[in-house]
Amino acid sequence: MYDLSAAFGAALRMVAGFDPALMGIVALSVKVSLAAVAIATVLGLPLGAAVALGRFPGRRGMIVVLNALMGLPPVVVGLLVYLLLSRSGPLGPLGLLFTPPAMIIAQAILITPIVAALARQVVEDAWTEYQEQLRSLGAPPRRAVWTLLWDTRFSLVTVVLAGFGRAAAEVGAVIMVGGNIDGVTRVMTTAIALETSKGDLPLALGLGLILITLVLAANAAAYTIKEVAQRRLG
């Protein structure tokens, strides 16, 4: 009980004080996760839609793989990206290890399957409804994909947010490829891990509360947008 109330106190003090170090950490968290989500969206939505509409050999297998990849263990992704980006690895010359781009890459790999798998479900349901009409209007497959993505955009916002939530809450991969460098690659989750290892549990929990609030706020905003838009556009 004592720890919990201390945590709330720590969280409030940090937020109220606009602690610049904290603000930097929050800003980096948001930036890295947004960038990862942007990449995952650009790759995952068309991929999900293509799998939803496509009739190609191995499609069922691909759906199973996509669904399975949703549960990709972050440490494994972290390790993989680490080995790729390490100076001794194939992409070493880029010098990306222990930088925010490395974290973005790791997160994008983690959440692209999530976005793709969820988008596939959404688009496939819409395709059942739209298929005959779109084919009747002479929509070529590529155009049909875009139309379906556009028409399910409010559901897809939720899909993308699921990706954002996972990215923002992830620690195993980003700590490995980012290195948790103060002021450079320290994000909310790695800061929480650090404070925990220093035994400063109230501070860690306080950071955790801020993170939860952030993810909550993003979801609430998206939910509201979805509700309002859906009421207007049906």
């Binding site: 409804e129 739209y130 005959e132 009409q133 009747s136 209007l137 002479g138 139309t147 556009w150 028409d151 399910t152 955009r153 409010f154 556009l233 049906g234």
Partner: peptide, 17 residues
């Protein structure tokens, strides 16, 4: 031929626009 024909379904499929 698809360009010269059209179809209307029992339940109209309206796009979200």
């Amino acid at each position: 031929p698809m360009r010269r024909q059209a179809m209307v379904f029992q339940r109209p499929v309206m796009l979200r626009r």
